[in-house]
Computed example of a mutant assay.
Amino acid sequence: MLQKNVFPIEKIRVPVKRMKTLDPAKVEEIAESILEEGQITPIRLREDGDRFVLIEGLHRLEALKALGEESVDGYLVHARLH
């Protein structure tokens, strides 16, 4: 079961491929929603040494950055061994 934690935004790396899908209008819309209701849906991350890589939640992360936030609620996803 995934457990929600708080992660420092500065330690999150967004893959270049993922950044290409960024829609500024969507970021603005989500930022407005966060101001009114707070962050409702956590992002998903995976560990990469002492940092984290974004898996899901680019627009939420960018909206929080735009609002000047330093942390984000998220789930740490562990890779399964086959």
Rank of each mutant, 00 (worst) to 15 (best):
M1F: 03
L2E: 13
L2T: 10
N5H: 15
N5D: 14
V6R: 13
F7Q: 08
P8Q: 03
E10C: 08
R13S: 13
V16I: 09
K17Q: 12
T21R: 14
T21N: 10
L22M: 03
D23W: 08
D23F: 04
A25D: 15
A25H: 12
K26N: 03
K26I: 08
E28T: 08
E29T: 08
I30T: 00
E32L: 10
S33H: 15
S33M: 10
I34W: 12
L35D: 04
E37S: 09
I40Y: 02
I40W: 04
T41K: 12
T41I: 12
P42S: 01
P42W: 00
I43V: 13
I43L: 12
R44W: 01
R44C: 15
L45P: 09
L45M: 03
R46V: 09
R46H: 02
E47V: 11
E47Q: 14
E47D: 09
D48N: 12
D48W: 00
G49A: 05
G49Q: 08
R51M: 12
V53L: 15
L54G: 04
L54K: 05
E56A: 06
E56T: 09
L58D: 03
L58R: 02
H59K: 05
L61I: 02
L61C: 06
E62N: 09
K65D: 05
A66G: 00
G68Y: 08
V72P: 07
D73L: 14
G74P: 10
L76K: 09
H78P: 05
A79T: 04
R80L: 08
L81Y: 06
H82T: 05
